[in-house]
C-alpha cells in the first residue's frame, strides 16, 4: 500500500490543481489576515471557508482524480497486487496531498502573523484539524461514489449532492426536527445528529472555542460541557475516524466486486 500512497502522492503534489489549491489558500488566508482588524475576525472567516470549501473541493477533486486515473488503475490492477492496497493507497495519496496543500496554504500566513504567540492558537489548530479531517472524509466519500458509478456525470452529481446535503440540507432537517419536537427536550437529539455529519461536527468543535460566552447559556452550556468533556472529545474523534473508515471500507468492498 505504501508504494501506491507514494506514487499517487508524488503524482498529485505536482499537479496544477494541487498547486492551485495551495496558492488559493495562501492568497485567501493572507488577504484575510491582512484586511481583518484582528485575529478573531480572521479565524471566523477562515472557519467559514474551511467548512464550506474543503468539503466541496475534496469531493470534486476526489471524483476527478478517480475518473482521470481510471485507465492507469486498470493497468496497476493487472499487476500482482491486492485491490484493497491499490485503492486505499490511491485514496490516501489523494487525501494527503489535499491536506498538505491546505495545511501549508493556511499555516504559512498564520505563522508569519504570529499565531503561535496568540490566544487564538487553539482555535487555529482546531480549524487545521477540522480541515484535515474533512479532506480525508469527504475525499473518501467522493472516491467511493466514483468507484461505484462508472458514469462520470452521475458520479459527480451524486458527490455534489452529498456535499450539498451535508453542508446545507442536513442542518435544515435538524432545524425542522427541533421545531417539530419543540415541546420535548431535544438537546441530546441535537448532539447525536451533530455526530452524524462531519461538517457539523467540525463546525461545533470550532464554535466551542469561538462562542464560549454565548454557549454558557443553558442548553449551550450543556453542549459545551459535553463536547468539552473527555467523552465528548473521544466520541468526536471516533466519529471523525468513522467518517474516514466507513467510506474507506465501502471503497474496498465496491472495488472488490467491481469489473474494471
Amino acid at each position: 500500500m505504501r508504494k501506491f500512497i507514494k506514487y499517487s502522492f508524488v503524482d498529485l503534489i505536482q499537479s496544477y490543481w494541487t498547486i492551485l489549491y495551495f496558492v488559493f489558500f495562501l492568497v485567501v488566508t493572507s488577504t484575510i489576515l491582512y484586511f481583518s482588524a484582528d485575529m478573531t475576525k480572521s479565524i471566523v472567516s477562515m472557519m467559514n471557508i474551511v467548512l464550506v470549501l474543503i468539503p466541496l473541493v475534496s469531493i470534486v477533486f476526489g471524483a476527478i482524480y478517480y475518473y482521470n486515473s481510471r485507465e492507469f488503475t486498470e493497468l496497476l490492477l493487472a499487476q500482482p497486487v491486492r485491490r484493497r492496497s491499490l485503492i486505499l493507497g490511491q485514496y490516501s495519496g489523494l487525501a494527503l496531498s489535499l491536506s498538505i496543500s491546505f495545511t501549508a496554504g493556511i499555516t504559512i500566513p498564520f505563522i508569519l502573523k504570529g499565531i503561535f504567540a496568540s490566544e487564538h492558537l487553539p482555535d487555529f489548530l482546531l480549524i487545521l484539524l477540522a480541515g484535515i479531517g474533512l479532506s480525508f472524509s469527504m475525499s473518501a466519500i467522493a472516491y467511493a461514489t466514483a468507484l461505484k458509478h462508472e458514469n462520470k456525470i452521475l458520479g459527480f452529481g451524486i458527490s455534489l449532492f452529498i456535499w450539498f446535503f451535508l453542508a446545507v440540507l442536513y442542518d435544515g432537517l435538524i432545524l425542522i426536527l427541533l421545531i417539530l419536537f419543540k415541546e420535548y427536550p431535544t438537546d441530546s437529539l441535537a448532539i447525536v445528529l451533530t455526530f452524524l455529519n462531519p461538517i457539523d461536527l467540525s463546525r461545533v468543535m470550532i464554535m466551542l472555542g469561538l462562542d464560549i460566552a454565548a454557549l454558557m447559556g443553558y442548553t449551550g452550556a450543556l453542549f459545551l460541557k459535553f463536547f468539552g468533556s473527555f467523552t465528548g472529545i473521544a466520541i468526536s474523534v471516533f466519529s471523525v475516524l468513522c467518517w474516514i473508515a466507513i467510506p474507506s471500507f465501502l471503497m474496498v468492498r465496491i472495488a472488490n466486486n467491481k469489473d474494471f
Binding site: 457539523d200 470550532i206 442548553t219
Partner: peptide
Amino acid sequence: MESSTILMR
C-alpha cells in the same frame, strides 16, 4: 428553541 444553539455558525 435553545437546542438550536447547535446550528450556530
